[in-house]
Design a protein around this nucleic acid. Structure first.
Lengths: 233, 233
DNA sequence: GCAAAAGTGTTCTCAGTACACCCATGT
DNA sequence: ACATGGGTGTACTGAGAACACTTTTGC
């Protein structure tokens, strides 16, 4: 059989969590510590092998669950990385997925010595080429956010338009005009108003909204099933 | 080691060739005939194994060259396909690339019993899940053509704006307003006028244009090197 | 009442579209 | 001359950006 080429599945997971400096919410990703060589002790993307009877996205979801406990709301293939020298002493091709989890789900991660959240734009030097992969995943997330409705995957079931706007602002790192943002979202039909409002702030209570399931989260492609929610249990 | 999962690299190649019904140019793709089981005799995408010391895109380029003789001007990763049942009796994960070749290059394919060009929208039932893959590649090409400059990769070194417009029309299957198309292309700065014109038509001779190398073909991503021309010998 | 954020209205600009019209060549 | 596509001018439309303004709550 000659040289062995092995296959691995990894995932970049994004969640929106409060900024430590008390600012607006920020993008975070969970990383796991390597517990064997190479790169023993370095932080890396969660991942693992592909089993014989599971699909690629199935392997991504299973590895995510076992390493971090997360079951993402959105899961999509990112890219296959396979440079010959990306793993010292072995030839590994990694098929990388990226995922979005909402704030409530993110808190289920049991942080410890070997699992920790990092601010997405401030990850340390990672094992293998994982720093490059995170950078690329960030680029894809930001690009896709600009002309898609995936922002909802980072929120809970109901939310105010200000919260939805904060998601966009955190991901795109810009300020958005509240008035124009409202009109664009309403025109897209991707949300529906509930009859509830959110009280408690010291100002006029904003209306709560809900996803409109009739509108798909992404610009549909022929591979829709691979790009949709893997488990909505 | 348990069940063996093998890895293959395949490529969907697009070229613009004259329509057999004498109409405007059309999108074609070359396919190769399977010479072993499974799917013996069926048409399939050109592809092959990944060797130990080559990159993924390198493997795609090499397989392309040996099976069809083509050296594409544009080569980009499409998607990794890995459903457990996509290859009967084996577990194969295929990392699929897509490529664009210009008309002159396309003629270098030695057609025969085992290699033939097909109109991209009229391929027969292919081996494995390759029909799905072709459909997805077509979707990606059309989507990318809408907000990118990759059309140039399907043409020769110099071309008229009408020829460039025909590329867009063939790919997107629409008619475009010549006046507006001209202005958009000129505004994008992706082409530069030469001092030559193309005589021979029974009308005013159109000016010839050339690519503007200063403008990248695609919306640049952090993985630019993987998305750019693999060999421009 | 006042601060603060929710929510509405209005104007401006720019890209895309439609289409009328002139230009230069072969026959 | 005239047919044919090359090439220019111009008006219309819709989406987004900027920003003034009104509304409704907590304090």
């Amino acid at each position: 059989m000659g040289d062995e080429i092995s296959l691995a599945i990894s995932t970049v997971i994004f969640a929106l969590r409060p900024d430590p400096d008390g600012g607006s919410p920020t993008l975070w990703i969970p990383l796991v510590r390597r517990i064997r060589e190479p790169f023993l002790g370095r932080w890396a993307l969660p991942g693992g092998p592909l089993l014989a009877d599971e699909s690629l996205s199935g392997a991504a979801a299973r590895n995510l669950k076992t390493t971090t406990g997360l079951e993402p709301r959105y899961l999509e293939q990112l890219y296959a990385f396979g440079e010959p020298d990306r793993s010292p002493g072995a030839r590994v091709v990694s098929i990388v997925y990226w995922a979005l989890v909402h704030a409530g789900e993110a808190d289920r991660v049991a942080e410890g010595d070997n699992v920790r959240w990092f601010i997405a734009d401030e990850v340390p030097d990672l094992a293998f080429d994982h720093s490059t992969i995170v950078e690329y995943a960030l680029w894809r997330l930001r690009t896709k956010m600009e002309h898609s409705r995936i922002a909802h995957a980072l929120l809970g079931d109901t939310f105010t338009l200000a919260q939805l706007r904060e998601v966009h602002e955190a991901v795109l790192r810009t300020k958005l005009d509240p008035a124009n943002f409202r009109r664009q979202i309403e025109a897209s039909g991707s949300v529906v108003a509930t009859d509830q409002v959110l009280t408690g702030g010291r100002h006029r209570p904003p209306r709560l909204y809900r996803y409109n399931d009739a509108v798909s989260l992404v610009d549909s492609s022929p591979l829709d099933d691979a790009a949709s929610s893997p488990s909505l249990s």
